[in-house]
Amino acid sequence: MTGAWPPPGVAVARAPDPADASPLDIDTDLVRTWLVQFLREEIERRRGFRRVVVGLSGGVDSALTAALCAEALGPEAVLALLLPYRTSSPWSREHALLVAKKFGIPTRTIDITRAVDGYLDEFEPEAGGHRRGNVAARQRMIVLFDQAFKLSALPVGTGNKAERLLGYYTWHADDSPPVNPLGDLFKSQVWALARAIGVPAEVVDKPATADLIQGQTDEEDLGVTYPEADLILHHLISGLGPDDLVEAGFERRKVELVAGRLEGTHWKRHLPTVAMLSPTAIGEWYLRPVDY
């Protein structure tokens, strides 16, 4: 700051460039402290909880979330729930256990196969992978919230900003926990922070997968890599249009794909639409913040 030249932290205006991911660079020490403070305040001070439950999938988002919770509240205050379905990859379990061991977090495994199949096999046996994935994601939230209630704990969410902007999650499932530390971090920022905080390399470096369908990876599903999607999303939500990015050298197919997902999923980032009938409609006229 004062006395240093060039002044640190002052961004230099640059044209968007597909080869320049520096707009997504973060100070991982700063963000780590920031999020640890966020978790302490939102969980303990504001909501009065001393414990949390996190669904630990074996992926990097939940690994980082659990590690941050352990740092904020102490590992013994975190319960990592492993919630496999019969089609889940065995690596998911291995990696979840690796993370739990690394950060000293207790785990409990609750297999959701019978709960999911109890509905699907009896009533909807023809359901395909996508529907089964959604049912599994929602079943995981039933378990997460019930375990939280039982333990007087708060469920903590793990969704990142890229997933949220692309709508790449199950509505009212992954996005339902009341506190989420990663929701304003793009996937490449999650990777950077996870590396800095010591999440095992096996977890950080493997291809991201929702693991809802066997063999699926996020990037194949999406048709664009996360680093590409992150940078395109960053520029789009900073005010540039798709044509600006194509002109700057971004690949049109990828820009249109990302912009299409962004534009098509605004509804998914909101609470349900309520018919407004009065001048005291909740959230429209009667406005009180979440922590009031």
Binding site: M1, P7, G9, I26, W34
Partner: peptide, 20 residues
């Protein structure tokens, strides 16, 4: 409200602006 976590200053970007 804190915003901006670019490397360099070690503080959120809004505090860099306040300093200036």
């Amino acid at each position: 409200p804190a915003r901006g976590a670019a490397p360099g200053a070690g503080v959120p970007g809004n505090l860099v602006r306040w300093d200036a």
